[in-house]
């Protein structure tokens, strides 16, 4: 029972950076912009967050710096793809390449540094409930913030006028433009907001989760976050589900390995990827369902004068 509770706790923690980054990318994509530069943004914000937490002595300063750095990189990306109409796929990949080099370059002095001592977190009263306490209520606050962010994003997208406009821009930029909305400004705003969220996720990895900075430490999680947006069929709630599924299967396979299960570790390590595909297939079987959610203009440039 206790092991199961700890497995749940580890799953929530592992899923959190994926959920936050995935949510950021989802906002981009809802506005019609696909950002394959996620890996680069996560790396730059990880080093920025680590540096800020190191000098400022506060995790929250780290998150703020991570968000700022993520937003700044996203702004450059957004300017290129939204204003200059460069190809989103190639520009995103170039941002990834740039980000991994740049973060390694500025971060070299932070390799081998350590942040101050971590305090244990516990929600008063609830943390002492048997099973549920250790499973759910002894997490870093950011784990709960991630859930709140997802709820806020769902509310924003489906219950506010601004959210409706954002979705309209992603769905049909021409009509949104005809109605007098500034398609480019809205897209850029979405990209920058998404970048800021990716930044928080990057900072979470380097400041809380690991916590250390070393070149390339994101190790492909940007790609997983991108995959999650597809997995979630562009709905915020399912991002959380996908992130916990991926994190959970990852933790489960490590857990089974430690139990000494008789299976090559390579096949165990494949499980999170295979599970994601299998669940996506199950979700996508109703074509209408997924089509209704995929932003119709995803990845396509918008020319206001055309």
């Amino acid at each position: 029972m206790n092991e199961l509770a700890l497995l749940v706790a580890a799953t929530l923690s592992a899923g959190t950076p994926l959920a936050i980054a995935g949510l950021g990318l989802l906002l981009n994509e809802r506005a019609g912009v696909l950002n394959l530069g996620a890996e680069g943004m996560l790396l730059i914000s990880a080093v920025a967050g680590f540096a800020a937490a190191y000098h400022g002595g506060s995790e929250w300063l780290g998150f703020a710096a991570g968000a700022a750095a993520g937003a700044a990189v996203a702004a450059v990306f957004g300017w290129l793809v939204v204003w200059l109409n460069t190809n989103q796929y190639a520009t995103g990949l170039a941002v990834s390449l740039f980000g991994s080099g740049f973060s390694a370059f500025v971060g070299i002095d932070y390799v081998g540094r350590q942040l101050g001592e971590k305090t244990a977190h516990a929600v008063p009263v609830l943390a002492d409930v048997p099973f549920l306490g250790p499973a759910l209520f002894r997490q870093h606050p950011m784990v709960y913030v991630a859930v709140a962010l997802v709820a806020a994003a769902a509310f924003f997208l489906y219950r506010t006028r601004a959210g409706l406009v954002l979705r309209a821009v992603g769905e049909s930029p021409q009509s949104a433009h005809a109605l007098g909305y500034g398609v480019r400004r809205i897209r850029l705003a979405a990209v920058v907001t998404g970048g800021a969220l990716c930044g928080v996720a990057g900072a979470f990895l380097s400041v809380v989760y690991t916590p250390l900075w070393v070149e390339g430490m994101v190790a492909g999680r940007g790609w997983i976050a991108l995959a999650l947006t597809v997995f979630a069929t562009w709905r915020p709630g399912r991002i959380l589900l996908g992130a916990y599924l991926f994190g959970g299967v990852t933790m489960l396979q490590l857990h089974l390995q430690a139990q000494g299960v008789q299976m090559p570790s390579q096949f165990m390590a494949m499980l999170p990827y295979v599970a994601t595909v299998v669940v996506l297939v199950l979700i996508s079987r109703n074509p209408l369902w997924i089509r209704l959610n995929m932003p119709a203009s995803l990845g396509k440039p918008f020319f206001p004068g055309a």
Partner: peptide, 15 residues
């Protein structure tokens, strides 16, 4: 790492 930065810059400029 600087090569990476330079490569990223050239690509972004090309695009």
């Amino acid at each position: 790492s600087v090569s990476g930065v330079f490569q990223g810059m050239l690509l972004l400029a090309l695009l």
